[in-house]
Design a protein around this nucleic acid. Structure first.
Lengths: 158, 158
DNA sequence: CTCATATCGTTAATATAGTAAACAATATCC
DNA sequence: GGATATTGTTTACTATATTAACGATATGAG
């Protein structure tokens, strides 16, 4: 049994619980796993890379050109007020532009620039590489199973 | 195919991507699933209930009485500076006390009070009920599989 | 024994992620 | 035409976390 800390005899003596309750909660395991994947994502994409949520937004804009901010917020499951800063960043980096939509002057459609599309393709490759490396101890079948089970949880969305 | 919004013909016309890239990333699915479980946890435990991290800390203090704050932070995978507020809250609610440890005057061991132990038992039951209800569309076997797969990701901890 | 080094709990400063509420402009419904 | 709803935005706030520093204390090397 590994010690928590080499010199801490007191803690050592108390550490007699077979399996802590915490480890049996899905929520706790989900969070711990998420923290690992998220921090590896950031490490892999580097200083001037994308934060996960910015990458996600860019991904959807590239795949759904002319999506509106409200629509994008809905897809991402966040408030539209929270999306403003994300779109600001992407527009500031020249990866998309806000464009007027004829027929509804409240709306501004989000359109990826050429640079946005190529940058996204590169970032996507980097994210795939990060996941392939980090999750190399899972087989393809295990990954598929994990996705399916997470999908069952996600069925509660909306 | 469900529409994103009943009147948004423009978005409708563009929404032709079979499977968005995002949905194929484990990290994204992990995050979306985590958000659902977390927010249901909070809803289930109510206004004056515990935040997930406070519940986790209490759980470990009850199961590892006399754990130190540094030790607890290590178990939770957070900085010890971040643990201070959590322990303050639990102590303020009378669920644990900081106690001097003879032999090392730097350390204060965390000991659950009687109220802390009973409150934890109730909270644990509430959390189990929340997970049972939220995850009722997963079989026991599926839950076990999910735990095992999350455990493989968690093997990268430390 | 003493001195360098490490650890403990804590505070303060900062960063990030997210919500809620309000707003003006515009669109839709009856 | 007038009530109602939606869009993008700003502002204020909350929660969660990290880093760096601190004084107090403990440990290890010589």
């Amino acid at each position: 049994m590994a010690s928590l800390r080499k010199t801490n005899i007191r803690a050592e003596l108390e550490a007699h619980v077979e399996t802590p309750d915490l480890e049996e909660f899905i929520g706790y395991n989900l969070k711990r796993a998420y923290v690992i994947v998220q921090s590896d994502f950031r490490r892999a994409l580097g200083e001037d890379g994308f934060a996960p949520r910015v990458f996600s937004a860019l991904s959807l804009v590239v795949q759904y050109p002319n999506v509106t901010q409200s629509g994008l917020a809905r897809m991402l499951g966040i408030e539209r007020s929270g999306l403003v800063a994300i779109v600001d960043e992407l527009e500031g980096r020249g990866l998309l532009k806000r464009t007027d939509v004829p027929g509804d002057r409240r709306v501004q459609a989000l359109v990826p620039t050429t640079k946005g599309k190529t940058t996204y393709a590169e970032a996507r490759a980097a994210v795939r590489a990060h996941e392939d490396r980090l999750l190399s101890n899972l087989s393809d079948e295990e990954k598929a199973t994990l996705m399916a089970l997470l999908g069952k949880i996600r069925s509660h969305e909306d």
